[in-house]
Design a protein around this nucleic acid. Structure first.
Lengths: 111, 111
DNA sequence: TTTGCATATGTCGGTCGTCGGCATATGGTG
DNA sequence: CACCATATGCCGACGACCGACATATGCAAA
């Protein structure tokens, strides 16, 4: 899962949001790192719907314009948490380093 | 930066490695999550060299076949650390759920 | 008043990293 | 002998993402 997709799901953690609100929320959560292009957002929403990670809940008409709300499915929430754990583990590989000696260790058996 | 690229750089943290060793090391570090295709590896190595993140140090001839070793540049090491921090921060958005900004939090939990 | 931005959804062509298959070569194991 | 691990590299295809464009309203500044 790529970063833009991750932050789209993360934006939906608390409550259902419509597309535009997802964009701004993803920007907040990522501290400006991710600025979703509309092409990315709406394509991703369709894709994630097809994958069963999000569902459209309802529509509001505001100023003659539809707002389509999306929420996380249990599958989507699980995928998000799983991805977060993988990212944390990946980060640890770099951040948790014994600052002492990079004595090259001869490939301890990992599995 | 995508995950395969990240683990290529991470594989080079301790010592210079040649391509094939990078593949296996990246697999170890990611606990099997990333299995680099050769197409990914050698293309990425060229790209990262062009970006100044890695450099080729030397070549060994083993069994009539060249082994090309790569190491991280200071720029590459900095980019790797920066990426690790961004990933850790992104993971925290999901794993630590103390809502920090303008979103209401469902009272479900934490205790 | 007209310009421009925020809100809001959506399409389309192009880019770029990744993937998988193929090529090539040697040495060890079943 | 076949097969796998080791080892590097090319090439076509795919998919997520990006930026531009289209469209429409409300509001504030120039």
């Amino acid at each position: 899962m790529r970063e833009p997709t991750y932050f789209i799901l993360a934006a939906l953690q608390d409550e259902p949001l419509h597309g535009y609100a997802i964009m701004t929320r993803a920007g907040e959560l990522s501290r400006g790192r991710v600025r979703l292009a509309t092409g990315t957002l709406y394509a991703a929403l369709d894709r994630l719907t097809g994958e069963g990670y999000v569902v459209s809940t309802h529509e509001e008409i505001v100023n003659g314009r539809a707002r389509r709300y999306y929420r996380l499915t249990p599958d989507g929430a699980a995928a998000l948490r799983s991805e977060a754990e993988a990212m944390a583990a990946a980060a640890r590989v770099v951040t948790d380093r014994t600052a002492f000696s990079p004595a090259p260790r001869p490939a301890a058996g990992l599995a």
